[in-house]
Amino acid sequence: MATYPGAMRKWALLAAAILTEVTGTLALRAFQDHSAFLAVVVPGYVLSFVFLANVLRTGMPVGVAYGIWGACGTALTAVLATLIFHDPFTAPIILGIGLIIAGVLLVEFGSHNAAEAPAAGETA
């Protein structure tokens, strides 16, 4: 990972998108018990998409950004829902999260290989 400020900003925006989406999702679950949590659900999702749009403006490929956002959001939501709401966290859930993360890593590595490969008709 590069250490220049643009790369740090890109990853900070992506982390913010993930955290606000997870907050919105957990608030959606809490809304089932307390209607006041609706005040967190909508802003959480709106902010998440605003941050994600800004990640895309930094030049991160949409497949990579969305994949990381989705995978990390899914994993973090599952863990926190277990801790906060006592949702199940079984071996199949753990395996599923691992497969999602593996898929995102393949997309990430594939995007780097595609960016580095010469275009059709060009020589390296």
Rank of each mutant, 00 (worst) to 15 (best):
A2F: 12
T3P: 00
T3D: 14
P5Y: 00
P5C: 06
G6Y: 10
A7F: 14
M8R: 07
R9H: 03
K10H: 10
A12M: 11
L13P: 03
L13H: 06
L14A: 05
L14N: 00
L14Q: 09
L14T: 05
A15H: 08
I18V: 15
L19K: 02
T20E: 02
E21P: 01
V22F: 03
V22I: 06
G24A: 06
G24Q: 09
T25K: 05
T25S: 10
L26Q: 04
A27F: 04
R29M: 07
R29E: 12
A30S: 03
A30D: 01
A30M: 06
A30K: 06
Q32F: 06
D33Q: 14
D33L: 09
D33Y: 11
D33I: 00
H34N: 13
S35F: 11
S35N: 13
S35Q: 12
S35R: 14
S35P: 04
A36W: 12
F37G: 07
A39N: 03
A39R: 08
A39W: 15
V40D: 07
V40W: 13
P43M: 11
G44W: 04
G44Y: 08
Y45Q: 01
Y45G: 11
Y45I: 04
L47Q: 11
F49S: 01
V50D: 04
V50G: 01
V50N: 04
F51L: 08
L52E: 03
A53E: 03
N54Y: 15
N54V: 01
T58Y: 02
G59Q: 02
G59R: 04
P61T: 02
P61C: 03
P61Q: 08
G63E: 10
G63F: 01
G63Q: 09
G63L: 03
V64Q: 05
V64A: 09
V64L: 11
A65C: 07
A65I: 04
I68P: 05
W69M: 05
G70W: 03
A71Q: 10
C72K: 02
T74E: 00
A75F: 09
A75H: 08
T77V: 02
A78Q: 02
A78F: 03
V79P: 04
V79Q: 05
L80W: 06
T82G: 09
T82C: 01
T82L: 02
I84T: 07
I84W: 15
I84Y: 13
F85V: 01
H86Q: 08
H86L: 02
H86F: 04
D87L: 07
D87S: 11
P88L: 02
P88H: 03
T90H: 02
A91E: 12
L95W: 13
L95A: 15
L95M: 13
G96K: 13
I97G: 00
G98S: 14
L99R: 00
L99D: 02
L99T: 10
I101P: 05
I101S: 03
I101Y: 01
A102G: 14
G103L: 07
V104I: 06
V104L: 10
L105H: 09
V107L: 14
V107K: 08
E108Q: 13
E108R: 14
E108D: 14
F109E: 13
F109N: 09
G110C: 14
S111Y: 06
S111Q: 13
H112R: 14
H112N: 08
A114K: 15
A114T: 13
A114L: 14
E116W: 08
P118K: 12
P118Y: 07
A120N: 08
G121W: 04
E122A: 15
T123F: 09
T123Q: 11
A124D: 12
